[in-house]
Amino acid sequence: MTVLLSMELVAAGYGDAEVLREVSLSVREGSITALLGANGAGKTTVMRVLAGMLPPRNGIVRFAGNDVAGVAAWDRVAAGLALVPEGRQVFADFTIEENLRIGGCRRPAAKRTARLDEIYALFPRLLERRRQLAGSLSGGEQQMLALGRGLMSEPRLLLLDEPTLGLAPAMAAAVFDLIRRIREAGTTILIAEQDVRTTLQTADHAFVIENGRNVLAGPAAALLDDAAVRESYLGM
């Protein structure tokens, strides 16, 4: 399998705060890859660098073989790299359907409508409520909407930043279910999560970062058995 997305020796931060000191990772095409780490380890910063919302101070980001330095976030979406940001960030005053349509704003109009039907097939709840304002949805439903909105651009790779944050366990399980189905439909996924166990059970490969540096990497199944991971992240 070829590498679809990679970051090599990336440093990044905000002002004087250096969040990422040196992080490398790669995502193989067709995989679910996990990015794990404690709160404040730099997961969201990695996602923002990959999505083009924060320029790295050092290092290279490649997508589909090309160095994407200087490519704006919105152009990365058009190229097939979409981010579902942390905290869902749906447009509260727009209806569900408007949220979804805006997610497909870089696609031709005809494709957008066809894609909308596919998304509704994947998320029947959203179809039922398509005329409601997104702000009136529950947290779990908003996460579904954020996922659907990200998928509207028909990305080759979907970046998911903590998609189960603040969700009830049953809802979180439903989200992981959807993530598997999205991958089966052909979309590569990089997921940043704090729920280490479920993420490792879902992912093929995982990277663990701490204080802005890589500390562990490997097949997800191997990490699940790793003594250090079990102690630090699974509390066993």
Partner: peptide, 13 residues
Amino acid sequence: EDEDAAEAVGIPA
């Protein structure tokens, strides 16, 4: 409403 989210969905803000 949310400039980050707008950029994330491909709006050339």
